[in-house]
């Protein structure tokens, strides 16, 4: 050991860490304390997650129990309403049909339900937090490192406390997905509002707009393209996260991928992977086209 340290004394050679015993006590203290707290409040936690559980189950049942052609028609209808582009609708139809042909329809529905719930929660949380961050520099400076942690912390790591608190199942899966998917929603809402033209805000002020009138009448409509980019990113991240979430018991395409990894099922892995890609592309194209349609006023130039 010392030889690799140019013959230096031990203090300079190896970083002086806390003694092993102290570290063990610290770990056990925190882990046990955390577990005790969770056990003590387990009833309340169950009660709090019950609506989420119910929402998830209802949506999943709706997706899986409805005949496939109805679900397909609804999905294509939504894509058409959002994008108004026949090309995107046809592409979506082909993608969904391929998924069905390869026997992944049911798993895809489970995943869709999961992603839909996670995205809705992420938007419902991210939008107000983003608005608050745009209004207060102090809040933004506190929030920013928190978001950095949420985005860079390996997702497997925060699965641990989520499992400790909520156990195994869909609800902890959704919570993990939301934690992973909400930062872009917050960031882009914040950014979008901050980027709104100062002159237009001043004009609203000069005409006596209250802060609520400014928010709903000026800031949100003008930052909508950026906010829609946030929604788009959130959906993409939620889709990417469902595979990881399958480790805590979420069904669907992610579970198949996880099994394929464990058993080295090359074909199953890729088929399920491509199914995720197909859903991702459908969501992405539809939401981007929707975002573009929202800002049609800014596209037309004058002659």
């Amino acid at each position: 050991m010392a030889a690799s340290c140019w013959g230096l004394p031990e203090l300079l050679c190896e970083f002086p860490a806390l003694p092993n015993k102290t570290l063990r006590l610290m770990r056990m203290g925190i882990d046990n304390g955390f577990r005790d707290i969770v056990r003590h409040y387990s009833d309340q936690i169950d009660a709090a997650t019950r609506p989420l559980q119910w929402f998830l189950n209802t949506l999943e049942n709706a997706f899986t129990n409805t005949p496939w052609f109805v679900v397909l028609a609804v999905i294509l209808g939504v894509v058409w309403l959002a994008s108004r582009s026949i090309k995107i609708v046809i592409g979506s139809a082909i993608g969904m049909c391929l998924i069905g042909v390869f026997g992944l329809w049911e798993d895809t529905m489970t995943t869709l339900a999961m992603v839909a719930v996670a995205t809705l929660i992420a938007i419902a949380l991210g939008l107000p937090i983003g608005i608050l961050a745009a209004r207060s520099d102090r809040f933004q400076s506190v929030l920013s490192p928190v978001l950095d942690v949420m985005q860079t912390m390996p997702s497997f790591v925060y699965l641990i406390p989520v499992v400790v608190i909520f156990g195994i199942g869909k609800v902890p899966g959704v919570i993990a997905v939301v934690i992973y998917a909400v930062p872009p929603m917050i960031r882009l809402t914040n950014l979008g509002i901050r980027l709104v033209d100062k002159e237009v805000i001043e004009a609203a002020d000069a005409f006596g707009a209250s802060s609520r009138q400014k928010l709903w009448g000026v800031q949100l409509p003008l930052s909508l393209p950026t906010i829609m980019a946030g929604v788009n990113q959130t959906i993409m991240m939620a889709l990417a996260m469902v595979v990881v979430a399958s480790m805590v018991g979420v069904g669907g395409l992610g579970k198949n991928v996880l099994q394929a990894i464990n058993n080295q099922f090359f074909t199953i892995g890729f088929l399920n992977g491509f199914a995720l890609v197909a859903i991702a592309i459908i969501f992405d194209r539809a939401s981007q086209a929707f975002g573009k349609r929202l800002q049609k006023h800014s596209e037309v130039g004058h002659d």
Binding site: D197, E199, V200, E202, A203, A204, D205, A206, F207, G208, G217, V218, P221, L222, Q295, H297, S298
Partner: peptide, 19 residues
Amino acid sequence: EFRRHETAMVFQKFALLPH
């Protein structure tokens, strides 16, 4: 209220609401 009822302003860069 003063801004709503007693004053109105015109801006150099127009500051119209694009939407």
